Amino acid sequence: MQTFKLNTGADIPAIGFGVYRAAPEETVEAVKAAFEARYRHVDTAAAYMNEEQVGEAFRASGLAREDVFIESKLWISDYTYDGAMHGFDRSLRKLGMDYVDRYLLHQPATEEFERTLGAFKAMTEIAASGRARAIGVSNFSIDQIKAVIDATGVVPATKQVELHPFLTNAPLAAFHREHDILTQAWSPIGGVTRYFTEDPKPEGDPLTHLTIVEIA
């Protein structure tokens, strides 16, 4: 599989398997099937409540740890320096791993941004210790990323954001390229246009939109 080079020197597989909205009882078999289909990149989060099952699926796979890219995210309830340290340790315990390949702030705590900065500062120390090979943010605006860089002197390795044919976020992607931040799309097959309806409209669904189907 194609990989991209992060600003830390780590390689990230271009395509990942996300377990958002995967119930714990479904996650083990889903991730095992993904590994069997040759996915080597799994995205989970504390808020998904299935980190433990991702770790179980990895151990059942027989794959070497260095051959799999595992990322998780800190939820806003743990934002602050101390909270992030505890939250990260909790994620490692649930995963049953000594390190993660990437660790993210799940979203900004907009009304209490100092807590967000404290959490990211903790993450820089986690990365320096080698327990996270890269760190990043998710769902941050350009101004919020600038504030993180200004406060810590550390440029996030990646920014995860909703990105698909109906939401291209071109100015944000340009900012990322300028600062050597890799843009990672969450839900590139449609995101919220498909999550919250049982019957996504053809004109709003990348899997059925006529132009996209023609290209495919």
Rank of each mutant, 00 (worst) to 15 (best):
residue 108 P to K: 13
residue 75 W to D: 04
residue 58 F to P: 10
residue 3 T to D: 09
residue 88 F to T: 03
residue 160 Q to P: 03
residue 110 T to P: 11
residue 70 I to T: 07
residue 202 P to K: 02
residue 6 L to H: 06
residue 179 H to R: 15
residue 103 Y to N: 06
residue 11 D to M: 04
residue 146 K to E: 14
residue 97 M to P: 02
residue 22 A to E: 04
residue 81 Y to C: 09
residue 129 S to A: 02
residue 11 D to E: 11
residue 112 E to V: 07
residue 27 T to H: 01
residue 193 T to K: 05
residue 179 H to L: 15
residue 73 K to E: 15
residue 35 F to K: 11
residue 45 A to H: 10
residue 113 F to N: 12
residue 213 V to Y: 13
residue 191 G to D: 04
residue 2 Q to T: 14
residue 75 W to E: 04
residue 216 A to T: 02
residue 155 V to N: 01
residue 94 K to Y: 05
residue 195 Y to H: 14
residue 78 D to P: 00
residue 27 T to A: 01
residue 5 K to Q: 05
residue 29 E to Y: 07
residue 172 L to V: 02
residue 94 K to V: 03
residue 44 T to N: 06
residue 48 Y to M: 11
residue 93 R to V: 15
residue 69 F to L: 11
residue 18 G to W: 01
residue 180 D to R: 13
residue 41 H to W: 00
residue 46 A to Y: 11
residue 147 A to N: 12
residue 35 F to C: 11
residue 115 R to W: 06
residue 138 S to Q: 01
residue 5 K to H: 05
residue 104 L to A: 15
residue 113 F to E: 13
residue 105 L to A: 14
residue 154 V to S: 00
residue 150 D to A: 12
residue 131 R to K: 15
residue 47 A to I: 13
residue 55 G to I: 00
residue 48 Y to G: 13
residue 100 V to M: 13
residue 134 A to H: 03
residue 167 L to P: 03
residue 34 A to H: 05
residue 187 S to W: 03
residue 215 I to K: 06
residue 11 D to K: 05
residue 54 V to H: 07
residue 199 D to P: 00
residue 84 A to H: 02
residue 2 Q to E: 15
residue 16 G to R: 01
residue 10 A to H: 09
